[in-house]
Write a protein that binds this DNA or RNA. Structure first.
Lengths: 219, 219
DNA sequence: ATAATGGATATTGGATACAATTTATTTTAA
DNA sequence: TTAAAATAAATTGTATCCAATATCCATTAT
């Protein structure tokens, strides 16, 4: 974070990033059917921009795995299969635990306090609060690792899937809190291997439950 | 308008991809100095296309880590520090070994034969041949893993660095061949953990030597 | 002399219109 | 009914234009 407050007047983010966020939310929210075709001119008119930022946004979404693009055919909303969810969570567990292990050596006492603080604030949170806090919690665990490419991969893979598991997995918040507790405890004790192992278990368990939920929904 | 006579580029793949390859090769070959600014209009004129495919190509190169882009500043050729090389090789070892382990369960007898065949053909190869064969060899080890996102990450990270280590590391071909031998042997014996471990060692050793070379060059 | 200020200039980000290419659809013909 | 041809639709790429912004350079103030 910058030491100064944001004094900017207008929105300085580039258009294709804003477009990307809009489309990503819409897809994850289910505004577009899986398999639905995304016509550039229609999107441009809907959002109120020209085709260029749309094209750039779609390319980003393709990398994140939310749409597929073929030459002269365009973009379609990707159908997430069970295998996709399994792959995403397996990669998340490997990459996030790797980033956590690397981050551990850079954590200051303040970092560890902040992590504990976030964890505590998640205990009594509402579902909506929890989803936001959880994103930031996981971000705190990994973002000190000094590996920009690794962090880029983690962000890419994480954005490819909605982070609203508390809404669909029964008891997810309670289970997560218990698992987070073990991770936080290990971090406070400077137990690198333990923290990483508990994080792997946490992500793996969540992935398994999400797959189970999707299986049941499909059946 | 445009003269289709002096086509610097073929006609089958999409333009921004061809542009991307051209620029990637040019950067890795050293045609652009590290830190050099890449002006879109100049590149467009040089290559003989309009600005749009240039812009799209630059964005891909940014993801691969070859250039950095800032709003209204444009693209500059990235300076690869020691830390970058270390990160790239560490990620490669983790991701490629993961992909190899997953691939092992899908290998057919033909796959294993083909891998052995490639390895054998690398024994007496010239340096140029070796570089090409080595790319395909590593590709064979990982590409059966049925994890498209994992393969995407491996490709992205690999393209961010020139794959011409045989040219700069003394005795690289001989050392690699010995390490490949162990990998191939483990694959033929269906020893998943062994193959993955030897691959990690191989990539790690190459990364170390490359860092050492860069250190010496800088000094 | 040096730092800050204030334009010119260059470059990027984005919009728009249009041509070219490919795919999808419909119509026509055997 | 089926196959070929014509048509429509969508994407890719080009050319141009304009606005926002960064960079550079000369001028001014301290």
């Amino acid at each position: 974070m910058s030491k100064h407050k944001n004094l900017q007047i207008g929105n300085r983010e580039m258009l294709h990033n804003q477009v990307c966020s809009i489309l990503r939310s819409a897809i994850l929210r289910g505004d577009f059917e899986p398999g639905e075709r995304l016509v550039q001119t229609e999107l441009a008119e809907m959002i109120g921009v020209s085709r260029m930022p749309i094209r750039e946004a779609l390319r980003t979404l393709e990398i994140e795995g939310l749409v597929t693009m073929e030459p002269h055919k365009g973009a379609v909303v990707r159908v997430l299969e069970k295998e996709d969810v399994e792959e995403i969570y397996e990669l998340r567990s490997v990459l996030e635990s790797m980033a956590l292990k690397k981050s551990m050596q850079y954590f200051t006492e303040e970092d560890r306090k902040l992590i504990k603080q976030y964890h505590d604030s998640m205990i009594g949170a509402t579902t909506e609060e929890y989803i936001e806090l959880n994103k930031e919690f996981h971000n705190l665990l990994t973002s000190s690792c000094e590996s920009p490419r690794l962090l880029g991969f983690i962000n890419t893979i994480s954005r490819g899937l909605a982070q609203d598991t508390p809404l669909v997995i029964p008891g997810q918040m309670e289970k997560s809190n218990k698992e987070h507790e073990k991770i936080v405890q290990a971090i406070l004790e400077n137990d690198t291997e333990g923290a990483a192992e508990y994080l792997v278990e946490h992500i793996h368990r969540t992935g398994m439950e999400l797959v189970k939920y999707l299986d049941e929904k499909q059946a």
